[in-house]
Each structure stands twice: as structure tokens, then as C-alpha cells.
Nucleic acid binder design. Structure first.
Lengths: 256, 256
DNA sequence: CTGGGTCTCGTACACCGTACAAGGGTCTCT
DNA sequence: AGAGACCCTTGTACGGTGTACGAGACCCAG
């Protein structure tokens, strides 16, 4: 078993998934096992955020001491990696297979990905920090590759197109989920929080000039409905941009 | 002066920039001031990463006690927000103004943004977590808006196009910078680290199947040169996709 | 009855952010 | 000259964190 201290010395192997250690136990008096720990961690992460997860609190929820958890995982990071992969398992792969053509497939994948990030706001900071190479994450990656493979782009260009689409989704989902998290922490609806934020921004002396060119856009947005409708609308249009871009590149590569 | 405890109770005002408190001091015996603190913090963040920054260590570097820093800032988060904005100040705004047309402007902005994220790997996790509304960040935002405004897209679609481009850059820069950080922590070059990672990935039993469909792409990439060349190449092509997408949407909106 | 796994726990360490109160230094006003 | 007010720095302390280590409790095979 690799200790945390050793892990730090060998960061190339710095993911649980690169250790291929068997899950342990389940027969103990506390009825603990890795799945139960991970499920409780996800619940706690969803409710309290990344900073709200501590080994002691997690253990308390499972009616156990903090050190008991270390029988099943080596470090707290392991728990987060397991939790992440479990969340990747929420992807509806059947819906993706049911999609018709690469455009639809990309759209469904992007929507699922975005929903995942928004539902679990701790995912995007974590996804940036850890390798995402658990079985569920890899399954999703395979579908993404399949979708991009269907575009007709040459194979050496496909990773780049994948980046264009899914790094965008990651970035978008990050902003959207952090906005939601902030609103929730402030105890407001997203709409109220948006109004408050814009007001605070506008009222801030010294920023009047900087805001000037943005005022028009803020005004336009105010007439576009609820915040969540704007998130949806913007996302859909950005995907249209990306799909149109891929189409254009395909005909540029194959044509001429 | 707003205390950290109060800040937590009023998360809507959860940014230093929404408080508009004057910078303090400079005449003390330790010769401290906010700029010196922030500069030292950036140095430490670049070298030790986000987790490596602690108030005690930062203070030690400035030959002062931890609590001294609290005369100039309210919380550690403030320091990070100041550091972030200072880094946004690294954008070469002149180069952006010198760009010729919106396509070039977008490309230059995207490259500058990406370089910033890669140079300071702590930026992308931080940028996801805090509001980015310091003066330098806003200046950059204004340039982005100017570039997108030049595309000819209707104003209510511009924010969406902005997302498509710059959320992509954010996502891409996040992955790239985290990869670099991991390589550095492992004490390897990016190229060696890449080879090691792929090997570990391939050798991992139980993943043979999952890897199967990715093998071809991995092989193609192996023939494309150094890791950093691939980063550059992929990024440039993804930008081409985005620019082509915007062009297509423009003619779709104006034509027909 | 014994020995060895499997699991849980108590204690302890080093570190974190930061609240609070007690100064020292310098500058201003009487 | 003395007194007070300020700006700035410090020491101490609190409640948290992840986790190393060693002691035990249980159960099952020999």
C-alpha cells in the first residue's frame, strides 16, 4: 500500500487510478466500505462545497472516527478522485448513443457535461487539479472521441477540435457553477444575486469608466429574461458557433 | 474595515474590489506595503503553487510576523485577488491594439490569456473561484468585448461568442498549466512526463480495452514532435475552428 | 486455545487562517 | 517638555486541518 508520503515523492503516479489497488473490506463492525464513504463524500461536497469536506466531518457522518477512513483510502485526495469518477458515472451514455449524427452527439455530450458541472460545483475545481482517468471518465472520453471522429476531420486534428468544444464546456460550466454556488452562499436566487452583483459593480466608484462600454450589454441582458434562461441561451448559441466552426474546417480540409 | 467574519456573512460583497478600501501604510519600520506583499505572494505562488502559500511563510519571506500582513489586507483571499489582478496586468494591451481586425485581435488576446495561465499555474484555479473584477481584469475584459464587437455579430449574441472563445482558452490553459505543474513536481521535462504518463496509462491492467480506441490517436501524437509543439499546434487550430465558427454565424445572421 | 488477519479507535504532530490585546515608534498639539 | 493619538508590529491563543503511529477489538483458521 502506497502511503501519502511516498505518493508525494512520486507524483508521476499521483492518481489513485494509476495504482490499481483493490477495494478493501466491508465486513467490519461499522459496516463501512469504499462505496459508502464515497457516496457520503459526494453528498457532503454537494452540500458544503470542496472546502466543507473534512475527514473528521465525513467520518462523523458515517458514525466513525476519522482514522477509520484511512483503512479504505490512502488520502483525502483519493476520496475526491473516487467521488469525481462516480459523478462521471452520471452521464447518460444511452442518450448519447441514441443521438443522431455527430452534431447531435456533441450537443448531448456538451449538455450532459455542463449539467454535471453545475449540479456538482466542486467538480470543476477538482477536475482541473486531478487526472480524470477513472473508468467512468474514460468511458465519457471515449464517447467524446467517437463524436469528434464522426465529423470527418483528419485524425491529427481531432484532439484539437475536442479541445475547442469540451474545454469550452468546462470553462462555461465552471463560471456557471461558481455563480450558482455564490448565489446559494448568499442565500439568494440566481436572479436576485445577478441584480445585486450588477448593482454593486455599477455603484463601485472608480469603475464608472470601465463599466461604460459594458453598460449596453448589461442593458440588453436585462431584457433577456431569467438568469438561467440566459445561461441556456448563451450555451446553445456558443455550441452553434463551435459546430459551425467544425463544419467550416471540415469543408476547408476536404474541399479546395 | 470589514473583518473576515463579516465577509463570510455577506458573500455578495465577497470580493476586495467591491469594498473600495484604500491601500494602507508604507511608512512602518518593516518597510511593508501592499504592493510588496502582493509581489512576494506572486513569487511564492509561482514557485510553490496555491497550496504552498501560507501567511506565515509569506510573512517570513518579508521578514515579518504573519499578523503584520493583516494590517494591509483583511484575509488571505484578498492577497490572492490582488495577485490575480496584478497578473492580469501582464497582458500586453498595446500588442492587442496593434492587431489588425477582429480575427487577429482575438488571436492575440487568446494567446496572451493562455500564456498568462501557463506562466502562473495557480491562476486558473483561482480565476474559477474569485470574481475577476480588478482594474486590470476589467481592462482585459474591455479589449475582449471590443474584439468580439468587431465581428459583426448582433449585440445580444456577443456574450455568447465571447464565452465560446474565452471559456475555451480558460479550459485549455487550465489543462496545459496543470500538466506543466505536474511535470515540474515530478522533476521531469514535459516530454519525459508525457511519455511516462502514457506508459503508466497503457500499462495499467484493466484499462487495455478502454485505451484501445485511443491508441491510434496516441500513436499519431507521438509523431507530432515535442509536447510543447503539440500544445501550440492544437491551440492554434482550435482558434481557427472558433474563428471559422464566428464567421459562419455572422454570415448566417446577416445573410439569408 | 492460539495466532493472525481485518477493522476501529485515541492520541499526537505539524501546520493552517486569524482574533485579540499589548506594545513600540513617531508625529502633533498644548 | 509632556501628553496623547496615530500607525504599525508582535506574541499568544483558538479551533480547525490531514494524517502517522500504535494499541486494541473482533473473527476465523489451525
Amino acid at each position: 500500500m502506497v502511503k501519502a508520503a511516498d505518493r508525494a515523492k512520486n507524483p508521476a503516479r499521483s492518481s489513485v487510478w494509476l495504482e490499481n489497488r483493490a477495494a478493501r473490506g466491508g465486513g467490519g463492525p461499522a459496516g463501512l466500505d469504499r462505496d459508502r464513504i464515497v457516496a457520503a463524500a459526494i453528498r457532503m461536497l454537494d452540500e458544503e462545497g470542496l472546502a466543507g469536506l473534512s475527514m473528521r466531518k465525513l467520518a462523523a457522518e458515517l458514525k466513525v472516527t476519522a482514522m477509520s477512513l484511512y483503512w479504505y483510502v490512502d488520502t483525502k485526495d483519493d476520496i475526491i478522485e473516487f467521488a469525481m469518477d462516480s459523478v462521471y458515472g452520471e452521464f447518460d451514455l444511452a442518450a448519447i448513443d441514441a443521438a443522431d449524427g455527430w452534431r447531435d452527439m456533441i450537443r448531448v455530450l456538451a449538455l450532459e457535461y455542463r449539467r454535471m458541472l453545475v449540479r456538482h460545483p466542486w467538480m470543476s475545481p477538482s477536475a482541473g487539479q486531478y487526472l480524470n482517468i477513472g473508468p467512468h471518465a474514460i468511458a465519457v472520453g471515449g464517447k467524446i472521441q467517437e463524436a469528434i471522429g464522426g465529423t470527418g476531420l483528419p485524425i491529427d486534428r481531432q484532439p484539437s477540435a475536442t479541445s475547442a468544444v469540451f474545454q469550452f464546456v468546462y470553462g462555461y460550466g465552471t463560471i456557471e457553477s461558481q455563480f450558482g454556488r455564490r448565489a446559494a452562499e448568499a442565500g439568494m436566487s440566481q436572479d436576485d444575486f445577478y441584480v445585486e452583483s450588477v448593482k454593486a459593480f455599477r455603484d463601485n466608484p472608480g469603475f464608472a469608466e470601465a463599466i461604460e462600454p459594458m453598460a449596453e450589454i448589461l442593458d440588453v441582458r436585462a431584457s433577456q429574461g431569467s438568469v438561467s434562461a440566459i445561461w441556456d441561451r448563451d450555451f446553445a448559441y456558443a455550441l452553434d458557433v463551435l459546430v459551425a466552426g467544425i463544419e467550416a474546417m471540415v469543408s476547408r480540409e476536404t474541399g479546395t
